[in-house]
């Protein structure tokens, strides 16, 4: 991992739903090639943070992605810059087939051969995708839909992938499989990852850095093994 070249820098990031402000000016750094965990209880603002980064939720402040300001960009343009978003609830295109979901992931790639190559690569990670490629994605199990959502996000060759609670509602064995794959794509493909999680133990084991959100503010941040190693922090902020 190249030491501390910032890929994403958010400064004084605010986000609001109508009149209500949900994010009260947070600072967030994601280094190139790293995995960063965004922790916090239900309602603390994890989803809002990710949506503010992509522009899906109204936001203000500054977000530099690879030194370029992205506030003012529409979500589709943020995607085109190389930020993939696996949303809360997975965003499965349920009536479309597995293959069509993946093809939509590669929508921004103009070269059909590159799309094909990406697909081959992802089938190596998720072999079942090939067997079920013609099935409607809505018929997959929750774990399979989560893997499909990750595979779809990887199709666009993103530089940064934002994951919103990929472990939600899944059996522990599926969660560890998914996290293993995330570790692999980070290490082997150099994809930077920002992962929002309520499952703090699993996320800290995966991440290099972590931020803890509390009612729309960063309560705490640091290297993940420091956070995980501090019993006081674990008890009062992370709930395990």
């Amino acid at each position: 991992m190249p030491p501390n070249v910032a890929l994403l820098e958010a400064r004084a990031l605010h986000a609001r739903y109508g009149e209500i402000e949900a994010l009260h000016g947070i600072n967030l750094d994601v280094a190139q090639g790293s995995i960063v965990a965004l922790l916090g209880a239900n309602g603390s603002g994890k989803t809002t943070t990710l949506r503010a980064l992509t522009g899906a939720t109204r936001r203000s402040g500054s977000i530099l992605f690879d030194k370029r300001e992205v506030i003012g960009h529409a979500p589709e343009d943020v995607a085109r810059l190389g930020i993939a978003h696996v949303p809360e609830g997975r965003g499965t295109l349920s009536t479309l087939s597995v293959w069509e979901n993946l093809a939509m992931g590669a929508y921004t790639l103009t070269d059909a051969r590159r799309t094909r190559a990406r697909y081959e690569k992802l089938v190596a990670y998720f072999p079942w995708l090939a067997e079920r490629r013609e099935q409607p994605a809505g018929l997959l199990s929750g774990g399979e839909q989560q893997m499909l959502a990750i595979a779809r996000a990887l199709m666009m060759e993103p530089r940064l992938i934002l994951l919103d609670e990929p472990s939600l509602g899944l059996a522990p064995i599926i969660v560890s499989r998914i996290f293993e794959i995330l570790r692999t794509i980070n290490r082997d493909d150099g994809v930077t990852i920002l992962i929002a999680e309520q499952n703090a133990a699993a996320a800290l084991a995966l991440a290099d850095q972590a931020y803890v959100l509390e009612t729309g503010r960063i309560a705490l941040s640091g290297p993940s093994h420091d956070l995980a190693g501090n019993e006081q922090i674990r008890k009062s902020y992370l709930g395990y």
Binding site: P75, E76, P87, T92, L96, E100, M104, Y107
Partner: peptide
């Protein structure tokens, strides 16, 4: 076709499509 697929996706799932780079 790719555009045909994107039109279907955009019609049924506008928000997901946007995050995939589709100009809905």
């Amino acid at each position: 076709t790719k555009v045909g697929l994107a039109m279907r996706a955009a019609a049924l799932y506008p928000e997901s499509s946007r995050t995939l780079g589709v100009r809905v």
